[in-house]
């Protein structure tokens, strides 16, 4: 499946509809979509060294939410938005990612959190698709 993201609007939230070939690729697509929301535009090239992030959850849905919340935390506290991703490990309960990003002048805290509301990951014939709702 070709990786893709669709942003579905709603008065109280932003819902991401994500498609990818694997869980790891799904996390990368979600990370890029979040970066675009945080920056307000398509991210430019990453700068600086790679860093490593590992998150875990009780299932694949929770792992995806915790991954996005990790990126939101880094953006707000370090003024650093991850834009380039490379999966090092992806299971239902653990995700390892190497990532590079861009430093911004002001902490881009437009997105408060990734939520469990309406959260869904489904295995489809040619990959996986997910819905995740962001509190903005």
């Amino acid at each position: 499946m070709k990786p893709s993201v669709e942003l579905i609007e709603h008065p109280g939230e932003v819902r991401l509809h994500l498609q990818a070939a694997t869980l790891g690729e799904l996390a990368m697509v979600a990370g890029r979509a979040l970066a675009e929301l945080e920056l307000g535009h398509v991210p430019g090239p990453a700068r600086g060294p790679w860093r490593e992030v590992v998150v875990s959850g009780r299932d694949r849905e929770a792992t995806l939410v915790h991954w996005l919340n990790e990126l939101i935390y880094l953006a707000e506290t370090e003024r650093w938005v991850g834009v380039e991703f490379a999966v090092t490990r992806a299971t239902e309960t653990e995700l390892g990612m190497r990532l590079r990003g861009v430093v911004v002048d002001e902490a881009p805290a437009r997105v408060k959190a990734a939520t469990f509301h309406g959260l869904r990951i489904a295995v489809v014939s040619d990959g996986v698709e997910a819905d995740v709702v962001l509190d903005v």
Partner: peptide
């Protein structure tokens, strides 16, 4: 925001132990 994020996560993890089943995980 972080307090909510932290505790939604915690409660999502411990809910099964209390036998609580919900129609929406965000109600953790």
């Amino acid at each position: 925001h972080q307090v909510c994020t932290d505790y939604v996560r915690l409660m999502d993890e411990v809910m099964p132990g209390y036998g609580i089943v919900l129609p929406d995980r965000e109600l953790a």
